[in-house]
Amino acid sequence: MTPAARVQTAIEILDAIAASAREGGAPADAIFGEAMRARRYAGSKDRRAIRGLVYDAIRRVRSAPPSGRAAMLALADTDPELAALFDGISYGPAAIAADEPRAETGLAATTLIALFDPLVDAAEHDAMLVRASLDLRANRLRSSGEELATIFPEGEPIAGRADGWRLPGETAAVQHAAYAEGRFEVQDAASQYAAAALDAHAGQAIVDLCAGGGGKTLAIASATGDAADILACDTNRARLQQLLPRAERAGATRIETRLLNPGKEHDMLVDWQGRADRVFVDAPCSGSGTWRRSPELRWRLTPSRLDRHLADQAKLIELGADLVAPGGKLLYAVCSIIAREGRAQVDDFLRHHRGWTADTGYLPDGIGRAAGAGFLLTPAHDRSDGFFLARLTAPC
């Protein structure tokens, strides 16, 4: 493909991504993958170049653009070489008109930025869209942090994590034989801190209430030496089905999965009421803390979608609390930097549940900042995804 043809292809893919964002459809990665399968003539260099253009434009544009061309023009305004490819020949995009509209640029819409936790000031904004590193977690059941350092000497330790190792974002770590052998998992530092903050131990009964594909479930199994009973739940069958094959590869043998029917979660967990030593509630959220990895999430968040997340979070923290044994602990977490999803949810829970208390001192020194009854991690301060977590102890 010519450079100009790559630009035109990127514009067409951006059209599809913007439409999907407005409609709540497939994520950008899925759309890009499908577009490349439809263009089998594109070589590996073409795919890399097109992907770079697509994601550079997404990072530049603050909300879903009126068209992929408007997004690409906003990027071309900062890159004369890119602008020169708008020449209308060689399957490239048409020449740029002087008065042609551009998509709005910036981190996010001002109404969205206004929802950020007060700790997320302007100094954090640039870091929120920088491409993320690739963070690994050694699986203690098969490996160690020291072994990761030997396998990937180009990396560096993750602060406060003996099992954590950080690599450049473009590293193809999952293609290494050690991954197939279950010796490590790809997991952002914030998620590693959260799983460790649960303070899980061998012999305990543990519930991962929103397990998804099981990243944190496997981290808990690793931390407990595969010596704790773990119930991993979710309402998404496709995601939950990913967990057991991953557990087998990791050598985690004491994980039970349970698919929950939406609206009937409480009835389907009656046998766990008041018996869990630890409950992890990694609630569905806006994903605003993960914009480094999925920048198109800025294009997807609407007031109505946020309201749905808030309602789900309140329901899930209540459901999780019902499962906790007297004196047990609940860890509430969201990969969000929006105050209403983080500190406000926990503050509201504590106001309505006498006897529950918020723990302190469960993060490594220098990691996270106090945010109400919990802690907020941010890209600039903690070199991680944006993440809120709060560990709560049930009354005895």
Rank of each mutant, 00 (worst) to 15 (best):
A5I: 11
D15W: 03
A16F: 00
A19P: 00
P27K: 10
D29E: 11
A30G: 12
M36P: 03
R39N: 14
G43I: 13
K45A: 14
R62P: 08
A64C: 07
P66V: 15
S67M: 13
A70F: 05
L73F: 03
E81P: 00
E81T: 12
A84W: 02
D87L: 06
S90A: 15
I96Q: 05
E100Q: 03
E104C: 06
A108M: 15
I113Q: 12
L119D: 01
V120K: 11
D121H: 12
H125L: 09
D126W: 04
V130H: 03
S133D: 07
R140A: 05
S144H: 09
G145M: 01
E146H: 12
I158R: 01
I158C: 09
V174H: 04
Q175A: 15
R183D: 08
F184S: 05
D188N: 12
D188P: 01
A189C: 05
A190P: 01
S191K: 09
S191V: 05
S191P: 02
A195M: 00
A197D: 10
A200V: 15
G203P: 07
A205I: 14
D208I: 13
G214D: 14
L218E: 13
A227P: 07
C233Y: 05
D234N: 10
Q241Y: 04
A252M: 00
R254G: 05
I255G: 06
T257Q: 09
P262S: 13
G263E: 13
K264H: 14
E265A: 15
H266R: 15
Q273K: 14
R278L: 00
C285M: 13
R292W: 00
L301F: 03
A311M: 04
I317K: 07
K329L: 08
L331A: 02
Y332T: 08
C335S: 01
R351S: 14
H352V: 13
H352K: 15
W356V: 12
T357Q: 14
P364E: 08
P379I: 00
H381R: 15
D382F: 01
A390W: 03
